[in-house]
Design a protein around this nucleic acid. Structure first.
Lengths: 217, 217
DNA sequence: AAATTAAATTAGATTAGCCTAATTTTACTT
DNA sequence: AAGTAAAATTAGGCTAATCTAATTTAATTT
């Protein structure tokens, strides 16, 4: 139906629209897709021809409704495959991204829905990212960065903003796992470090960088 | 590593070598790959450059050892994914081929082996085709065509030579399933039809065409 | 062995997706 | 408002994988 490349552009545009606002710049896309700007311009023209995006020369791109549907479908598929890889095949959460990047492009509606059922209709992937439902609806999360909590406040660790293996590994080593309750015991003004209490027992100190990678509810 | 296209050529060459002898002709490949002959010539040159095949102008192709390893790896992966689709996701045996054609190209050694383990190290795919082991060894089958049996002889239904959905559906409808014991009760000389006894109870009549699609052991 | 037919190759194009270099458009300063 | 910097586009090329038309090589028939 659509090439892997087109699907990757759609996904990238979708994510940029989510985080950086409605209209996406050529340069931003070029950076995310790791190609040079003229390649993006080329591709956007082709995709506009297929009604996947609306593109105005030098004015950036937006997804059409159809483009959004495809993008969300890919994301749904990606996250379901991640659950499969972790829950069924025994991969660790920091190992699945690249494989899921490939598997996500193998999707018929039927396959995705059967996989969803097989996995028990999971609501989030191994990193806590919500899985869109079969209609392309993505539940709005009201999770906030751990770094926005004040001393004494607490929340449940429900997701990460940093998906790099390095960060995920750090969390493993620090003993911070999805679902844990995290309470901010202290914030050191001097160097912006946080003292946390995890699961009402152990206490640890993390940097601001780490606190910015953790989402709590 | 290798493109999907290269992998498909390797698989096609492998299968043609198995059935039609050591050396594969350009025209045979063109037919299987559903492309025109000059495309094959082109591709063979590229693949010879990568040491995946040995190719002599106008003399046909053979796989190199490396080419064979890759081809068998793809077949292993294809068959494991078919088992997954049928056993885990609930697909029927006539529905999985096209999906597995895509999934087969997503393969790291690790993924394939984890999938193998998850599926319980199956020895055959849903059509009875043997699954190569992790070292690329494919068990030699001594199955024979049902059409070669004489009256009174019997065997266990262990595979098909015709993988089309139409044929597989016919077998479903006729109540002939993998693993069934099949005994030839009679062969009608006039029109080459076979009267079979399935699982020591029901008796059915099949055509020669069907008898040529069934492998027994 | 010559002639014919069939198979394979070469030559020259096409498309998707990418590139670099040059140019144009937009945005930002002063 | 003019000048500069940054962003985007056009122009022209490249590669993988395909095509058609023309040619060459191999196989088969007389």
């Amino acid at each position: 139906m659509h090439s892997f490349t087109e699907e990757n552009y759609l996904k990238a545009i979708y994510k940029l629209q989510e985080t950086n606002g409605e209209v996406v710049a050529t340069s931003a896309l070029a950076q995310v897709m790791e190609v040079h700007a003229p390649s993006v311009t080329d591709m956007l023209k082709r995709m506009a021809g297929k009604k996947l995006v609306t593109y105005q020369k030098s004015k950036g791109v937006k997804l059409t409704e159809r483009g959004r549907q495809v993008a969300v479908g890919i994301i749904r598929n990606h996250r379901l495959w991640e659950v499969f890889l972790v829950d069924k095949l025994g991969y660790k959460w920091d190992e699945v991204h690249d494989l899921a990047e490939q598997l996500e492009h193998i999707h018929t509606e039927d396959l995705t829905n059967k996989l969803d059922k097989f996995l028990g209709f999971p609501k989030a992937d191994p990193h806590g990212d919500p899985i869109p439902d079969a209609n392309g609806v993505l539940p709005k999360s009201k999770a906030v960065l751990l770094s926005t909590l004040k001393v004494g406040e607490e929340g449940m660790f429900t997701g990460v903003t940093d998906h790099t293996p390095a960060f995920l590994n750090y969390l493993d080593k620090a003993g911070i796992s999805l679902g844990n309750n995290i309470k901010v015991k202290a914030i050191e003004e001097f160097d912006q470090t946080y003292t946390l209490q995890i699961k009402s027992n152990k206490e640890i100190i993390i940097s601001n960088k780490v606190a910015n990678g953790i989402l709590v509810n």
